[in-house]
Design a protein around this nucleic acid. Structure first.
Lengths: 70, 70
DNA sequence: ATTGCAAGTGCAATTTATTGCTCTTTAATG
DNA sequence: CATTAAAGAGCAATAAATTGCACTTGCAAT
């Protein structure tokens, strides 16, 4: 899962929960500016920023051995 | 999955593959210094740094809806 | 015990993520 | 169309990640 996919997931999940970027940024404790960048897929956020957002959205970050498709 | 868990996973996976921090850092294209910090669980790496490491180690980062345990 | 290699770490330099301010664009609603 | 709210974006300031260098610590093998 690349950062671009994560961006889209965050954006979709936020919309499902019907909250604005401003509301999410405040609840997560990151700046509105940063959240905008992240949802646009621009930049290179830190794991902390992503974790804060994930916590609010009921998401979690995992890392696992990649499955190779035949 | 918190950053601390990711650090441990990276370190374990690297040892399973029997490569040194230096080798991994060079293959991933990040500095040895940064990799050391990450494996120690210190700092706050960017998603790019984690992705580069994950690629070499055959790992992948995922983000998904958290399952609530009863 | 000592030799050699891998990993941990303090510090300073540099690059870059994060932020605030401001303005523009888009989308929905009356 | 006009209004309003939400999202996109340029720019500069600041905080923080990344890096290199030098040194120490740990660990295994001879």
């Amino acid at each position: 899962m690349h950062f671009n996919d994560i961006s889209i997931l965050i954006k979709n999940r936020r919309k499902i929960l019907r909250i604005t970027q401003l509301a999410l940024s405040e609840m997560a404790g990151i700046s509105l500016r940063s959240l905008k960048e992240i949802e646009r897929g621009k930049g290179n956020p830190t794991i902390n920023s992503l974790n804060k957002i994930a916590d609010i959205l009921g998401l979690e970050i995992n890392m696992e051995v990649k499955i190779i498709n035949k």
